[in-house]
Design a protein around this nucleic acid. Sequence first.
RNA 1: GAUUCCGUAGCUCAGCCGGUAGAGCAUUACACUUUUAAUGUAAGGGUCCUGGGUUCGAAUCCCAGCGGGAUCACCA
Length: 510
Amino acid sequence: MEQNLSEQEITRRNKLEEIRKAGIDPYPAEEFLVNANAVDIKENYERDKLNYKDISLAGRVMGVRDMGKAAFAELQDSTGRIQIYVRRDDICPGEDKSLFDLLWKKLLDLGDFVGVKGYVFTTKVGEISIHVTSLKLLSKSLKPLPVVKTDEDGNAHDEVSDPEFRYRQRYVDLIINPKVKKTFEQRTKIINSIREFLNGHGALEVDTPVLQSIPGGATARPFITHHNALDMPLYLRIANELYLKRLIVGGFDWVYEFSRNFRNEGMDRTHNPEFTILEFYVAYRDYFWMMETTEKLLEKIAMDLHGTTDVTLGDKTISFAAPFKRISIFGAIKEHTGVDVSKMNEEELRATCKKLHIEVDNSMGKGKLVDALFGEKCESHYVQPTFIIDYPVEMSPLTKKHRTEAGLVERFELMINGKEVANAYSELNDPIDQRERFEEQVKLQERGDDEAMFIDQDFLRALEYGMPPTAGIGIGVDRLCMMLTNQVSIQDVLFFPQMRPETKAVSEEA
RNA sequence: GAUUCCGUAGCUCAGCCGGUAGAGCAUUACACUUUUAAUGUAAGGGUCCUGGGUUCGAAUCCCAGCGGGAUCACCA
């Protein structure tokens, strides 16, 4: 493969050869033991100076201020940056000054990994720095890193802002944009916090199939693949719900899974083809208990992450302090349209939608019409965490019928910042009712709804053995991360968001 | 999938009333043993996304394609 190398890349490759000629291995195999890091030194040196007389750390050279026979440089390790002070006669105590004059001054580039040993001191301007007594090249960088400089006030200059560059070369984004790195560290903190909460309540983390022969548990278009040995189609899961319920049938009281789901639909600021849902199912509980548990969980995550329940999101402040507001979906529609649709039949609903200028078609049943009304007129108003409860049975084929309200089911969705973040039910455990609901879905399919659910016979068989009353929930982990880390795009909470391929598939050369 | 904006040096961007490219940082060379967006002097670096068209002449105007962002549709 021919590569078109830039001037700077050629220069670095030439330096690589010179390094080898000088008898230095640019990619040494042996370990370099580290006993300190940038943040630890900056935070603790002042009060514990004796402990920082013989330190060893490693990282990338991210900036050099050369002064002739001495130099200051920025060393960036996994925790942050620290200034190092390299003086020729300290790293080259003998006659041979080549380590400084040749390697340091001529052959080292921004982005190279070095290991340094030395002692910590404070410069006369007051910056805690490392006075280097020995220096070792650990890995040569052959591509120039975009240089981002930060001034006294912390403003970044020439920050790489091109989203395409940042998403395709996330590794570079992470090196040069500390805020990006922080967001992903926060994402992991959020997930750890959730695990801690669930494990603390005795929940069991499980794994269920990603390859499924019937894509169930949600309404969405799946990705299709093929198993060669079995010669049959398989689908990437759109949800894991039906498998977790099978485990409740099997006798577990509380199971959970961080489920990577795949849906073959559009992409935008809040949708990526693969995304993560946390689902958990708890026996002998109902959706009221689930609302309280969700409040406790979110409150804990916010506290673990920010130390407060008030979280900044754009120009808004979201309060994750329990309890959250609750309103029925019909109540929400009445509040934002002035129309009471709770007693309407399908035709009246369709007429109401048309009156409110909402696009409808004949394939839409009662459930989809109510969903459209809520989505168009209500959803965006719920900025603070709000439970929308008691949905019509037609839009919830896996949910138990409401204990008192005919035509409704025991379901809630949690809205935050105008977006659905969680969806939960008192789970339907009546196998005969479940079969009828699936059959309703088949009718919708016949009417042209290509997202209606398939019948999963094995799931029905499991229910027939008996499933205890159960509460279940799915929480959109990516969206929750967006809300808690103040990001507007799902691409900024996924390390490697989906992109079209970069290189042309077909070469036009003859 | 539709509409719209964008694609110029390693990075950030200027140039866009058509006359074959500029700045800052980065790079190269020299100077400098406490600097910190280090500094000073000098130099090099571009298939102006790709392919067509208009024109004496295109980074600039037109068309198509590729890639990205935003909005909409589908959806979480």
